[in-house]
């Protein structure tokens, strides 16, 4: 187990390095720059600004400075577009929002989706099954940009229970609607994966053996069926969790929550090189981390897999 984590951490280094170089080059290849605007700056001014941010140096030197800044001081540099703000401060501000609603979305998606799928499989072809399948199909076909306005119409305009947007330090009233809008489609996917894998497990030979032993259905499910049925769900959860905690631009724009999704898109359109790089690196690291966690959970569920 320990050597597995070490190995994964080591292999993350070249992956991240590649990610940095690749996105760096890609950004520079895109036309325009952080200081291009409709009214071009005088060349002298532009040169000065570029010199200030180090953009006049060769790419290799820029990448080296950037990476060594991160490694030695965990400094992602200044933002090119938000004056007097560092990327570090923007990231910490954005993530403090996204992490909260992302985490709760994950809890809701797993907490509702998994039982829904499992119960549907156990009560296969009953009204409960049809209801669960109906709910997940409904949740899947409603994209969050449709869901969000519907929620606002219902809870804000009609019922007047919840504020229609804003964050306000993360009070619960402000969290509910972003969480519902973000979690529904994940919940639907989780429930569908859980249902089909549970159905498959229930038809497997070892469940037949368990029945032949005379075990009651409840302990067949809890002891024999649940763990193997969770395997495909777990491999979906790693990337899904990253997807949720890194936020969604639609949620941020629609509910004005001020999370990472918004900053990410803005940084891309504004050519805010340093902010975009910072966000990319964080997303990349999180993806690697949670895929590793998913693998660890996977090995715990399936003794055939030895982490080494």
């Amino acid at each position: 187990m320990f050597s597995f984590i070490v190995k994964r951490a080591l292999s993350a280094v070249p992956t991240l390095l590649f990610l940095i170089i690749f996105s760096f080059v890609l950004m520079r290849l895109a036309p325009g720059g952080p200081f291009t605007s409709e009214k071009p700056l005088p060349p002298q001014v532009l040169a000065n600004i570029e010199a200030k941010y180090g953009l006049d140096q060769p790419w290799l030197v820029q990448i080296w400075n950037y990476v060594s800044g991160i490694v030695t001081q965990f400094d992602f540099g200044p933002s090119f577009r938000y004056k007097d703000q560092t990327v570090n401060s923007i990231l910490s501000q954005g993530f403090s929002v996204t992490l909260v609603y992302g985490f709760w979305s994950f809890v809701v998606a797993v907490g509702v989706g998994m039982p829904l799928g499992i119960i549907a499989a156990i009560k296969h072809n009953s009204w409960l099954d049809y209801l669960a399948v109906g709910i997940s199909i409904g949740a899947q076909v409603l994209p969050n940009f449709v869901m969000a306005p519907l929620l606002v119409i219902l809870f804000t305009l009609v019922l007047g229970w919840l504020p229609g947007g804003g964050w306000n330090g993360g009070q619960w009233q402000y969290i509910i609607m972003p969480v519902i809008a973000l979690s529904t489609s994940y919940m639907a996917s989780i429930s569908r994966i859980a249902r089909s894998s549970m159905l498959e497990v229930l038809h497997s030979n070892f469940i037949r053996t368990a029945k032949a032993k005379g075990l009651p259905m409840s302990s067949i499910i809890m002891k024999h069926a649940i763990k193997p049925a969770l395997l495909p769900v777990v491999s979906y959860l790693g990337p899904a969790f990253v997807g949720m905690i890194t936020g969604s631009v639609i949620i941020d724009v629609y509910f004005s929550t001020g999370g990472m999704g918004q900053y990410f898109v803005d940084a891309a359109t504004n050519r805010d090189y340093s902010l975009l790089m910072g966000a990319t690196i964080i997303f990349g690291s999180l993806t690697i981390l949670f895929n590793m966690l998913a693998d660890i959970v996977y090995a715990w569920l399936d003794p055939k897999i030895r982490l080494a």
Binding site: A212, K213, G214, H224, P228, L301, P303
Partner: peptide, 22 residues
């Protein structure tokens, strides 16, 4: 369930898949 597994039991064709893997 009070009878099967106790007074009458069964073994199956495919031993590779008939035991719970975990």
């Amino acid at each position: 369930n009070t009878v099967r597994g106790r007074n009458m039991s069964m073994i199956f064709q495919d031993p590779l898949t008939s035991l719970t893997p975990h």
